[in-house]
Amino acid sequence: MRTNNEPVHVQELISKKKQSKNLFLKFEKAIPIILFLIASVSVFTTIGIIYTLFSETIEFFKQVSVVEFFTGTVLKPLSQDPKFGVLPLIMGTLTSTVIAMLVAAPIGLMTAIYLSEFASERIRKTFKPLLEILAGIPTIVYGFFAFTFVTPLLKHVIPGLETTNILSPGIVMGIMIIPMIASLSEDAMSSVPNAMREGALALGATKLEVATRVVIPAAFSGIVASFVLAISRAIGETMIVTIASGSSKNFTFDLTQSMQTMTAYIVEVTGGDAPAGSTIYYSLYAVAMTLFVFTLLMNLFARYVARKFKEEY
């Protein structure tokens, strides 16, 4: 205890401290400004991305015509007479994405239906974290898996399969995005009001009928949004296709062959230490710009659909 027995007068003590407070108040006023500057980092990131991609892409189009780039079916950056058609890469990207969606859309959707409409609370609580684990596995591990396990496995079924091919990474990419579709679609389905389900159940509908005729139509835009996001994710995926699909710039529909995606091309060019200023170097940005625009449009579309969905209830 203090030596003198005077009672403490808090308000007096407080007003004595006022002097030191003034400095603190200046600091207090500066805080919103500091925080705003911190928050603007994310805006500068976007500006940075757009600026780098854009300015270098313009350099590229000074050397290669826009028409050749977007309509050319031949990509031969290293040959004597280089050709810079982006279509082989778009072909590779779209093919792997379609394969992935063929795997992920039905399985992801059925998983979502099971978890939202059929599973007991306990099963749901065990399965959801397990799916999260699946989603948390680094893509490099999936790439390894596609290359060393799925491709050899598929070779037993399809003898003509090349060591690097578009099929195997497509399938594995599909497996990778199952959790994404499942969890986003499940969210959409779970937010369908129970009253709608009960109405149908009371008429004697089975759970399947409730799911297909009530829940899925009601959650439709949410499900669509999850598909679009998954597509965008597949388009931007890099490591699986880089490892398992190789670098042949084939413009083909043959799934057993190696095809290169836009992302894999970027990896190949940067890994090859293309000298800054060369056409190859700039082509990297033109491809990245194409990739960026693709995924951005997908994401904007997904959010537009999802927002519409929210308004429905």
């Binding site: 991305i49 780098t52 931007g236 995924t295 959010r303």
Partner: peptide, 15 residues
Amino acid sequence: IANLAGVPSIVYGIL
């Protein structure tokens, strides 16, 4: 921020 979350990681690599 929402849009940045959807940008492929390889694009960050280029940045």
